[in-house]
Nucleic acid binder design. Structure first.
Length: 378
DNA sequence: CATCCGTGGAA
DNA sequence: TTTCCAAGGAT
């Protein structure tokens, strides 16, 4: 990449005292060039990633694997995703396999990962790709964007990483990197337009996917939210915030709201086989489609007669509490345990499962734990 | 544009 | 203990 001689470089007017140094009128390398060189040497080894070296040799990632990883990585850390991703890929090696699976199997495999709409849309997307795209993911940003669970970020990421399209990928990492590079002081999310404009100017035609992954790796390892390691940054010389020493001020974010408290009660009904009664939660809303213990709604105040929400008449004993913090509220659940009365018949949306075998969202796992205290305690 | 939607790790 | 926040999307 030939360096065009700058006609604005300071070297023209260099003082005589620097004559022996003869610094090259070194125009700084463009950001993509510096970033990609850094990525070639420092790319993280991730299970869904084709390393830059292999990529240059012609290897291409499986679009299914890219899609699966991107959905799982939405608002979820690499450390959490990596082992779960391997389980998904082993269980459903391709999109047709996932499309053929029952939704409840996918939800069960997703248990504990949070944001369960992702799992519902994952399955819906697999079915769509299998049925209306012949089992192949579309290779354009626009067509990808139309699929369930694929928004602006994920569509661009898949287009760039799996299909080598020039697509402007913007995630939280890249927002942070760019807002520091250009010292963008507009608060998010309003700053997104400006961030996109800056990226549009510098985004390379070639190695679009590697550029996106390089920016994200940089954001994760160097240009971190707290204590960025600017001394190791390949583009610090181009970074407006670094030069001003203000990298800690970016990105500007709005203040967060306080989380209200909510309370409720759940009931752990146990039968003679030691199985516990679970029910499938409504398809939409919090923990939609997941298994849980029957119980009250979760409100600011406890209901007058919580036993109206019990699944059966039983000698309910309060065995403990479960506390959990969701994205937008704190929850305290009173946990009651009881034995199923004779002749009890479960409803159609309920099922008996050994508690240790149930694939549950975390709050329900905590509630089950509070219903069955571990035998040993010193 | 604002709100809803999980979880676990780090500081 | 509390706060922050991570490869966001749907409504």
């Amino acid at each position: 990449m030939a360096c065009v001689h700058s006609n604005t470089g300071a070297s023209r007017y260099g003082t005589p005292s620097t004559q022996n140094v003869t610094r090259k009128a070194a125009k700084l390398p463009p950001i993509p060039q510096a970033l990609l060189r850094w990525y070639d040497a420092n790319a993280r080894d991730l299970p869904w990633r084709v390393a830059p070296k292999a990529r240059k040799a012609g290897a291409r990632p499986d679009p299914y694997a890219v899609w699966l990883s991107e959905i799982m990585l939405q608002q979820t850390t690499v450390a959490t995703v990596a082992p779960r991703y391997r389980e998904f890929l082993t269980r459903w090696p391709d999109v047709k396999a996932m499309a053929a699976a029952p939704l409840d199997d996918v939800l069960g495999e997703w248990a504990g990962l949070g944001y369960y709409a992702r799992a519902r849309n994952l399955h819906k997307c697999a079915v769509t790709v299998a049925e209306t795209h012949g089992g192949f993911f579309p290779d354009t940003e626009e067509a990808l964007r139309a699929l369930p669970g694929i928004g602006a970020y994920t569509a661009a990421a898949i287009a760039a990483i799996a299909f080598d399209r020039r697509a402007i990928v913007i995630d939280g990492n890249i927002e942070r990197v760019v807002s520091r590079l250009y010292a963008i002081d507009t608060p998010l999310p309003a700053a997104k337009a400006e961030i996109r404009e800056k990226l549009e100017e510098i985004w390379p035609q070639k190695r679009s996917g590697d550029f996106a992954q390089g920016l994200m790796d940089l954001g994760a390892s160097i240009c971190r939210p707290k204590a960025p390691i600017c001394l190791l940054c390949p583009v610090s010389s181009r970074c407006k915030a670094f030069k001003a020493g203000t990298q800690g001020n970016f990105p500007v974010k709005p203040a967060k709201k306080a989380k209200p408290n909510r309370v409720g009660a759940v009931f752990a009904l146990v039968n003679a086989k030691g199985e516990m009664l679970f029910e499938r939660r409504p398809e939409k809303g919090l923990l939609g489609g997941m298994l849980g213990l029957p119980g009250t709604e979760w409100k600011e105040r406890i209901e007058a007669d919580v036993f109206n929400a019990a699944p059966a008449q039983a000698d309910w004993e309060k065995t403990g509490e479960a506390t959990h913090t969701f994205t937008h509220f704190h929850l305290t659940l009173d946990v009651y345990a009881g034995a199923a009365p004779k002749g009890f018949r479960r409803a159609s949306d309920q099922q008996w499962i050994k508690p240790e075998e149930a694939r549950l969202p975390t709050v329900m796992k905590k509630a089950v734990g509070a219903a069955t205290p571990s035998p040993s305690r010193a």
